[in-house]
């Protein structure tokens, strides 16, 4: 569905030091440096996938999104999305996609949401019948009915984001690009947005490409992640693969009846210890979690056990470190 091959893109950036003198100098004799934003990016995405596209700031996420949504032209490489090359047949290509930029609004600020939707209906040449059906579905699933008659400027950020997402789905796109859709939202709105993305993905088979810095988004939504750093793809795989590769330790926390006997199990290190509780970090290649628990149960009268994997957030930080990005 989306085929990207050997995409490269570099930008010329004007080099300028601070100060008025430097500003004058750059006016007369501008110095440019070339920044390679993307280097040989290739990936394929199938219909119905949700892909988390992650990486630190400045890694090239936005540039990629801009190229595959037809805003930018790459220096080299091929891209085929539903039979179109985005930058060659822009108008035909963008009919198939919906784009949400989390930080920018696509709605008209001073008029009721419904007016914006009506205008979008004309922009995308949506037939009356299709428009009504889609709008009904979106209104139900996103709970928009009370919002449609309100001017955008009076909506809260969470309400606005729901309206934004609905706006980019009015023309029934097959692909949805979400650029930081949950940025700045409160917990309730975040969950609403996530659930909705899941729903349309399941029910309408909309392919979703999602960039975010919120690892909870990734964990609840994306089956597959593509990690990009310094313009290169570093990792492309499922979330489980990623976890297995980097989750080499688990944390076991045990509550027990008061007991201060010393303890030492090979393959574990004690993170904290009190008379009623112990936290152990378990190296999975040396000992199994079940083994640790059974050893502990021989020694203590166990009340409660919790086992935690490392949070995905930490894994990502490690990844960034490993690739030095």
């Amino acid at each position: 569905m989306i085929e990207v091959e050997h995409l490269s893109k570099s930008f010329k950036v004007k080099k300028r030091d601070a100060g008025v003198g430097a500003a004058l100098k750059s006016l007369i004799n501008p110095q440019y440096t070339t920044v390679e934003a993307l280097h040989d990016i290739s990936f394929n995405i199938d219909e119905g996938e949700i892909v988390g596209y992650i990486g630190p700031n400045g890694a090239g996420k936005s540039t990629t999104i801009k190229i595959i949504s037809g805003i930018l032209v790459p220096d080299s490489g091929k891209c085929n999305i539903l039979g179109h090359t985005p930058w060659k047949s822009r108008v035909n290509h963008v009919k198939n996609i919906g784009v949400v930029f989390g930080q920018r609004s696509q709605l008209w600020w001073d008029v009721p949401v419904m007016d914006s939707y009506n205008l979008l209906k004309d922009i995308y040449k949506i037939t009356h019948k299709d428009f009504r059906n889609t709008l009904e579905l979106l209104t139900d699933t996103l709970d928009l009915s009370t919002l449609l008659s309100m001017p955008v400027r009076q909506l809260s950020l969470g309400q606005r984001m729901r309206c934004e997402i609905a706006a980019s789905l009015l023309h029934n796109p097959k692909i949805l690009f979400l650029d930081e859709p949950t940025i700045g939202l409160d917990a309730v709105s975040k969950i609403a947005v996530r659930n909705f993305i899941k729903t349309i993905n399941k029910e309408k088979k909309v392919t979703v490409i999602l960039t975010t810095h919120d690892m909870n988004d990734i964990e609840t939504l994306a089956e597959r992640i593509i990690l990009i750093g310094k313009g290169k793809i570093l990792l492309d795989g499922t979330l489980t693969e990623l976890k297995n590769r980097f989750a080499t330790h688990k944390t076991v926390t045990v509550d027990f009846a008061e007991n201060n006997a010393p303890i030492s199990i090979e393959g574990t290190t004690i993170l904290s210890r009190s008379d009623e509780r112990i936290s152990l970090s378990v190296a999975l290649d040396k000992i199994k979690v079940s083994e640790v628990i059974s050893r502990l149960s021989k020694q203590f009268e166990i009340i409660d056990v919790t086992v935690n994997s490392r949070p995905i957030e930490e894994i990502i930080v490690d990844l960034y470190k490993e690739y030095q990005i």
Binding site: G70, I71, R90, V94, R104, Q106
Partner: peptide, 14 residues
């Protein structure tokens, strides 16, 4: 400046 031209480019009109 506001980046709204990107929005224009992702809509199927001239």
């Amino acid at each position: 400046i506001t980046g709204n031209f990107d929005r224009i480019l992702v809509r199927p009109r001239t």
